[in-house]
């Protein structure tokens, strides 16, 4: 078995090559109760920074998505302290200075682009900060659609911006106020409220376990 040496929080371990950082940590004996979630690159819980021997660059990535390399120095960042003021979406307006008034530290951005370099999702994070600054809410929502809130940009930001909270608010505002309403959704909601599925639900609720299992197996599945 090929092995590599990795340094987890300063201590060296021999681990099989080809493991992800997360699996390597478990192989080394760490039991992960924080900093570990979906193991599929979606939840953003396993933010990790590392350096490679002989390379000045500080890399940032998700532990569940990154393969170990020989001579890797690893530290996990299971949680990023970030500031999010309380707000009520229904009291906000999707307009120019809304993001800035709740997150005024956006104005501290120096356009260094360090956030973008840190993003494991390869988002254009600085462009999103700039769009937030100028009040382009749909632009922010678009640019940050794939953000997993891992907090790596936030930890690297010299302006101390709490990025993912800004993005979340922008997407909420965009969804609530700026995205065109879908008439077919409203129509279906009205149908549900009008009792269109009542009889079928009642029938399901009245079924015994075996009958329910049989019905489940026989259900229509989209191809």
């Amino acid at each position: 078995m090929d092995e590599v040496t990795v340094f987890i929080m300063g201590k060296g371990y021999r681990v099989p090559a080809g493991l992800t950082i997360m699996k390597a940590m478990e192989y080394a004996g760490y039991r992960l109760t924080r900093g570990c979630g979906c193991r599929g690159g979606y939840c953003g819980a396993c933010a990790t920074v590392y350096r490679l021997r002989g390379d000045y660059k500080l890399y940032a990535d998700l532990a569940c998505q990154t393969t170990v390399q020989d001579g890797m120095y690893i530290a996990q960042l299971p949680f990023t302290p970030a500031e999010r003021p309380a707000y009520r979406l229904e009291e906000l307006r999707a307009e120019g200075q809304t993001l800035l008034s709740l997150f005024p530290e956006l104005a501290r951005c120096v356009a260094c682009n360090t956030c973008t370099k840190a993003c494991p999702q390869k988002l254009e994070v600085m462009d999103a900060v700039q769009a937030s600054l100028r009040g382009d809410i749909p632009g922010v929502a678009e640019l940050t659609f794939d953000c997993v809130s891992c907090g790596l940009c936030t930890m690297r930001c010299p302006a101390e911006i709490s990025h993912h909270h800004v993005w979340q608010l922008a997407r909420r505002l965009n969804g609530a106020y700026l995205t065109p309403r879908a008439p077919h959704v409203a129509q279906r909601v009205a149908e549900v409220e009008g009792g269109k599925f009542r009889a079928e639900l009642d029938r399901l609720m009245a079924m015994g376990k075996e009958e329910l299992v049989a019905a489940y197996k026989a259900r229509d599945i989209e191809p």
């Binding site: 200075q97 800035l100 005024p104 104005a107 501290r108």
Partner: peptide
């Protein structure tokens, strides 16, 4: 210290943060 007491235009906040924090 910069503690905005109301919404401010970008141009005011950016200047204040850069010069005073």
């Amino acid at each position: 210290p910069v503690r905005p007491d109301r919404p401010y235009p970008q141009i005011a906040l950016i200047g204040a943060y850069r010069k005073l924090t």
